[in-house]
């Protein structure tokens, strides 16, 4: 009887939390069902200038050659193949690979990882934001989408 009461009260608390949680974030839920937040969750309050970009936008930035592409995958994955000119900064070894002097703070950076299911591009983008960079774009289609469209790639470390 006591366990039943415990379960009943727990269910009540959970139900109240779901109702209040969902009803207080209806605009966010709408945005989710419109397709946002499938690739990562960037808080616009904390990272106002960080944006997700699609393949055509990434390709355009690549053609303009004014942006630096950051590959946030592991060293092995990077060495096997990456977007031409991309710099490898694996999320797990961010401090080791990141050097403050590499890029000026106003530089536009395009961060990518494996594809839509990976999280390291968003994580690295946030770390770069914390280092003072403000022109950061996250290419959420990532490596998978880039090679699927036969866009320029290279192997090994072409930044050394």
């Amino acid at each position: 009887m006591r366990i039943r009461k415990l379960l009943y009260e727990t269910a009540l608390i959970l139900l109240a939390s779901v109702l209040v949680g969902f009803s207080s974030h209806i605009p966010l839920i709408k945005r989710y069902f419109q397709g946002e937040f499938r690739h990562g969750f960037v808080s616009l309050e904390k990272f106002p200038s960080m944006v997700y970009i699609t393949l055509p936008e990434a390709e355009e930035l690549f053609q303009e050659r004014s942006s630096i592409f950051i590959d946030s995958r592991t060293e092995d994955a990077y060495n096997e193949g990456h977007i031409v000119g991309a710099v490898n900064i694996p999320y797990e070894k961010f401090n080791e690979f990141f050097r403050d002097s590499i890029f000026p703070l106003e530089q536009t950076l395009v961060v990518y990882c494996d594809g839509t299911e990976c999280k390291s591009s968003t994580a690295v983008a946030k770390l770069l934001y914390e280092r003072g960079f403000r022109n950061i774009k996250i290419f959420f289609g990532g490596w998978a989408e880039w090679i699927a469209h036969n866009l320029p790639v290279s192997e090994g470390n072409d930044t050394k």
Binding site: A16, G21, H25
Partner: peptide, 9 residues
């Protein structure tokens, strides 16, 4: 969306 409200409540 839900966990913070469970914590608060």
């Amino acid at each position: 969306l839900v966990i913070p409200w469970i914590e608060l409540i």
